[in-house]
């Protein structure tokens, strides 16, 4: 164990950094996608609703590993060879980010949709009856209440996405699992290596959960009296 830590510790730590970087990029775009698609699925417009529904079901219906292969290998092949436009190369980081953003974005969209729908319809009606336009009512009344109920699910989704980065080892991104595989193939110390990797994930996720608890508590406090 100590040999793994002393020799490969820095390497594994750097790989953890790559994992976090990938997760961060992915989550950033996932939040944007989730917000847009989530809102598209609650507004009255049928076309918007339809697009959101197809997107969410498509992504949820395809395993992330297939999505990863499809984006990393399939899309450039389509562009360069089948369509013969040429010139498209995706780095593993780019493909990984797109993959995470799409996958996590679809789930975030569902969380956001459910959060908005959990707010009593009367809140919107009261806001509209005062003459507030739809979007202002959304911003000032509905979303602040919806976000409160969404926070636990969103944090949960963050954790899942962080763990899902390990799937992207299949497209060669040098994140933690991929790096650990290389370490094992050099040292044959699979027990020690995977134990260290497991603990590293665990620590990061425990920290994230603690942060989540603090955020949740603060939101609850804000809801009560000043």
């Amino acid at each position: 164990m100590s040999k793994i830590l002393s020799t490969y510790g820095p390497l594994l730590l750097r790989a953890m950094g790559q994992t976090l970087l990938l997760a961060l990029y992915g989550l950033f775009f996932a939040c944007i996608i989730g917000m847009i698609v989530g809102i598209m699925s609650v507004i009255k417009n049928r076309v918007c609703k339809g697009i959101a529904l197809v997107f969410v079901n498509l992504i949820r219906g395809v395993p992330m590993i297939v999505l990863a292969y499809f984006i990393y290998f399939g899309i450039p092949y389509l562009w360069n060879t089948i369509l013969a436009i040429g010139g498209l190369t995706l780095s593993a980081l780019e493909a990984g980010t797109i993959c995470l953003a799409l996958n996590c974005g679809a789930y975030m969209a569902e969380i956001i949709r459910a959060g908005i729908e959990s707010v009593d319809i009367g809140q919107m009606e009261a806001a509209r009856s005062l003459g507030l336009p739809y979007w202002r009512s959304m911003q000032r009344v509905i979303l602040p209440q919806a976000i409160r109920t969404m926070i636990p699910s969103i944090i949960n989704q963050f954790i899942i996405t962080l763990k899902d980065t390990s799937i992207l080892s299949v497209i060669g991104f040098p994140e933690l699992v991929n790096t650990a595989k290389n370490v094992v193939s050099k040292t044959f110390m699979s027990f020690q290596t995977w134990a260290v990797v497991g603990v590293m994930y665990l620590i990061v996720i425990l920290i994230l959960q603690q942060a989540a608890k603090i955020v949740e508590r603060r939101l609850k406090r804000g809801h009560r009296s000043l």
Binding site: D120, A126, S129, G131, V141, P144
Partner: peptide, 22 residues
């Protein structure tokens, strides 16, 4: 309709006060 609604106050059975504000 938003302009017209400004002139028509409405009170609901379930109050519908905005829960996120004092």
């Amino acid at each position: 309709i938003n302009t017209i609604r400004r002139n028509i106050g409405m009170v609901f059975q379930h109050f519908n006060l905005f829960n996120n504000m004092n």
